[in-house]
Structures are given as C-alpha cells and as structure tokens.
Computed example of a mutant assay.
Amino acid sequence: MTKKERALNAIEVLKKEYPEAICSLNSSNPFELLVAVRLSAQCTDARVNLVTPALFEKYKTLDDYCNADVKDIEELIHSCGFYKSKATSIIDMAKGVRDRFGGVVPNNIDDLITLNGVGRKTANLIVGDVYGKESIVVDTHMIRIANRIGLVNEKDPKKIEFALKKIIPSEEGSDFCHRIVLFGRDICSARKPKCDICPMEYNCKKVGLK
C-alpha cells in the first residue's frame, strides 16, 4: 500500500472503533480550550479536567485572566505541573488575544503561535476543533502511531504535521487526531501495545514492526 492508502485505511478503521471523535479536554469556549491545552503540557488530560472547573469558575472572561494575580492561578493549577510558567503564559495569552486580536482567539496557525505558550500542536487543535479548518495535531501518540503504521518515517513534529497533511484528507484531520489519541491510550501504547486485539494489525504488520 502507498502511504495515502494506509492513511485512508487507518481513518476508516478508527472511525469504526471510535465513532465519536471528541477532544479529551473539557472547555466551553475557544479561550478555555486554549488554556486547557496549555495546562496539558507534561500532564494528563484527566488531571487537567480535574483542575479546570475551579479555574473556569473563577475566571469567566478574558479580562478576568488579564487582570488575574499570577499567584492565584498558580495555586489553582499547581497539580498540573510547571505551574509557574503555565500561569504566566495563561495571563500573557489572554492579554495577547485581547490586545492584538480584538478579544477573539485567532483562527489561523501563524497568529496563534505568536501567543505565549502556544506551539503548533496547540494551534492545530484550535483551528481544527474551534474553526473546522485543516489541522493535524502531532502529540506523542501521533508521533508513535504514525510511524508504527507506516504513515511517516520521521520524529520531528513539524515534519510529521506537513507529511500527514499530504495524505490525510483535510476534512478528516481533526477527528483522525482525536481518534489516534484514544487508540494510543486504549491499544497502541508506548510500552505495552495490545497487538493481539489491534484493529490496525494489518497496517502494522505490513511495515514489519511485528
């Protein structure tokens, strides 16, 4: 199979396994999603979802974040790790969105990555989930699985993003990435993949990994 054929096959397999492709992070508006993704760095989504309710209850508007005391945010997000840098970047993100983008979270990657703490992974998630645009979120699950099933032979996240955008239909990218995360947690884990029940065993065998 070509890489494009592998990609289309993987899309269909994962659609059957995970028909509801939803983001694991809870949020009620674009800026809350931006905050949740920032908190998820070096932290599980489950932990972030335990932390954000109190944060979102206290800080309801962009101005609330802009005027926040960094120490207060640090206390609320402490258990997510790297809380000092995350708290600082959350406030800076809010000010950037307010002062440079009229209070609206940008709808494109180039603008998003100018915000403090926002990299391409976060930017792709926002443009895909919030604005329905072409996106490929390259996290540790995607790096591992895209290589295992023969879609790429590359470890650099940006190179993987652009390589996958060539073979994943633009309308499928966002959902595919969410499904990859679910698949990575359930079956294709880093240390002990459950190869005996893997629905993509065919792809994996074809690239000689088993």
Rank of each mutant, 00 (worst) to 15 (best):
I77R: 10
D69I: 02
D110E: 15
L125V: 15
T114A: 01
R191F: 07
I160V: 10
D139F: 07
C195P: 05
R120N: 11
N116M: 09
K133F: 04
C66F: 04
K166A: 15
A146K: 08
I109Q: 02
V105Q: 03
L164N: 00
G81Q: 03
I180S: 01
C177W: 04
K158R: 14
G96D: 11
N108Q: 08
N153E: 15
G81D: 05
S85N: 15
A123M: 05
D92K: 15
E134N: 12
S189V: 02
K133V: 03
A146R: 01
T122H: 02
R144P: 03
K133G: 05
M142A: 13
V70Q: 13
K121I: 11
F82Y: 14
D129N: 15
D111A: 14
S170D: 14
D92S: 14
V127D: 07
V152K: 08
R148W: 14
E171T: 07
D175M: 12
E74K: 12
K192F: 09
K71N: 15
S174I: 06
G103H: 10
V138F: 02
F183A: 10
L125F: 10
E172P: 11
K159E: 13
L182N: 12
A94D: 01
D196L: 13
C66M: 14
P169S: 08
G96I: 08
T114V: 04
A94K: 02
K165H: 09
I143H: 01
G132V: 06
G103F: 05
N124P: 06
E75D: 13
G102L: 04
E74G: 07
E134L: 09
R98C: 01
S85P: 07
I145E: 02
K71W: 09
G117V: 08
D92F: 11
L76S: 09
F176L: 07
L125R: 00
D196T: 13
I73D: 04
T88Y: 11
F183H: 12
L151V: 00
D110V: 06
I197K: 13
N147A: 03
I113E: 05
I73W: 06
V118Y: 07
P169T: 13
F82H: 13
P106K: 02
K86D: 13
V105R: 00
K192N: 15
L182M: 14
P199K: 07
I90Y: 11
I77E: 08
V181P: 00
P169W: 09
D129M: 14
D110M: 06
V137H: 05
V118T: 01
S89H: 11
D92N: 15
V105D: 06
